[in-house]
């Protein structure tokens, strides 16, 4: 068993755009749930809008990539508004069911054959990042994201982070978005605005009785978290194809797990939680099949790769019961309002 190889592959996940994308979505969920107390179970929908908005902006509307990015963000804002105007008056668990249903509606609409021309249906969309475009769809040849890469071609870094210029470009862009978003969120939650949304999390009637427009604050929180989720989706789209099979409810649940792992009511919790969660996923996804192959586990490699998801579920249960504040959260500030 190549244990070093496994560790190396695992470590590469620390800087993987996917990890950063999930960290962004987790940050959005921290705003929603950790700070404003909104039970958003539809984060996958926001991410899907970010990714598809970008891809469709390029492929269907022929926008340059940097403008297309705003299509996804704009779509997530519109989604948050449509979702929020009626639902933010609902009780917490109702909001959870509405958001999960809304995210499923988005996924089904992206999957249906009716809009194949735009969404690519089950095949998803490809070739919008500049290179690898098809002949009939000459994606912005010189204007694509990949072509905007200022890094000369070649391999950079050191193992396990030895990668080509494209991977590094995405990493750097992802890192910039992530750092910017984290800083903004840190500023927000430590400001009087953050004080108000934390108050709303505790008891919205009390905050209302103090003359704050609770609905507007909740809406702002929903939009900000949704935009962060769409940025996560955008990052995924920058690094790979988009496909509706990614944006399933399980994705939302995984992001919840990562968030609760780090601590829901913290700014760095989602970040650290995502890194731990996805590297752990990668590690278990490699180590169990390797153990199975070496004959140390009595089942097939495919089965071995599934074990990690079972473990995720168990971790989620144990976290919520025994350490709801997460690794970094303050026990006193655990966020589950009864």
């Amino acid at each position: 068993m190549d244990f070093l190889g496994i560790l190396s592959s695992t470590a590469s996940f620390i800087l993987d755009p996917t990890t950063m994308a999930y960290a962004l979505a987790g940050l959005g969920l921290a705003i929603h749930f950790g700070f404003a107390g909104l039970l958003n179970m539809g984060m996958a929908g926001f991410m899907a809008l970010g990714a598809y908005g970008y891809a469709i902006g390029i492929l269907t509307f022929g926008l340059p990539w940097y403008l297309a990015a705003f299509v996804g963000i704009g779509a997530s804002i519109v989604f948050a508004l449509i979702l929020g105007i009626p639902t933010l008056r609902l009780r917490g668990d109702y909001l959870a069911i509405v958001t999960i249903a809304a995210a499923e509606i988005i996924r089904l609409l992206l999957l249906t054959a009716v809009f194949t021309d735009v969404t690519g249906s089950a095949d998803g969309l490809t070739g919008f990042n500049g290179t690898g475009g098809t002949v009939t769809n000459p994606t912005p040849g010189a204007g694509g994201f990949n072509d905007a890469n200022p890094i000369p071609s070649g391999e950079y870094g050191f193992e396990p982070f030895l990668d080509n210029e494209r991977t590094w470009f995405i990493r750097i862009v992802g890192m910039l978005i992530l750092v910017g978003a984290t800083f903004a969120v840190w500023r927000l939650v430590n400001s009087p605005w953050g004080r108000v949304i934390k108050g709303i999390r505790e008891d919205e009637d009390a905050v209302r009785s103090l003359g704050k427009n609770v609905f507007a604050y909740k809406m702002q929180a929903l939009v900000i978290g949704g935009v962060l989720g769409s940025l996560g989706g955008l990052l995924l789209a920058l690094s790979t194809n988009v496909n509706s099979s990614v944006y399933v409810t399980s994705l939302t649940f995984f992001i919840w797990t990562a968030l609760l792992l780090g601590g829901a009511a913290t700014v760095f919790g989602p970040l650290v939680g995502s890194v731990i969660f996805w590297t752990l996923q990668a590690f278990l996804g490699l180590v169990f099949p390797a153990l199975a192959k070496a004959g140390l586990l009595p089942f097939s490699g495919i089965q071995a790769a599934q074990i990690r998801f079972i473990i995720v579920g168990v971790i989620l249960v144990l976290l919520v019961i025994f350490r709801p504040q997460g690794i970094f959260g303050n026990k006193k500030e655990l966020t589950f309002v009864k």
């Binding site: 039970l39 917490g92 668990d93 959870a96 399980s250 649940f253 919840w256 797990t257 609760l260 089942f299 089965q303 599934q306 074990i307 998801f309 079972i310 473990i311 995720v312 579920g313 168990v314 971790i315 989620l316 249960v317 144990l318 976290l319 919520v320 019961i321 709801p324 589950f336 309002v337 009864k338």
Partner: peptide, 22 residues
């Protein structure tokens, strides 16, 4: 709390679901 219970049920759902797949 009820919200915690709901999330526990989500975790349980994930664990059992992937157990079936296993």
């Amino acid at each position: 709390g009820l919200v915690q219970l709901m999330i526990v049920s989500i975790g349980l759902s994930l664990a059992i679901r992937y157990m079936y797949q296993f």
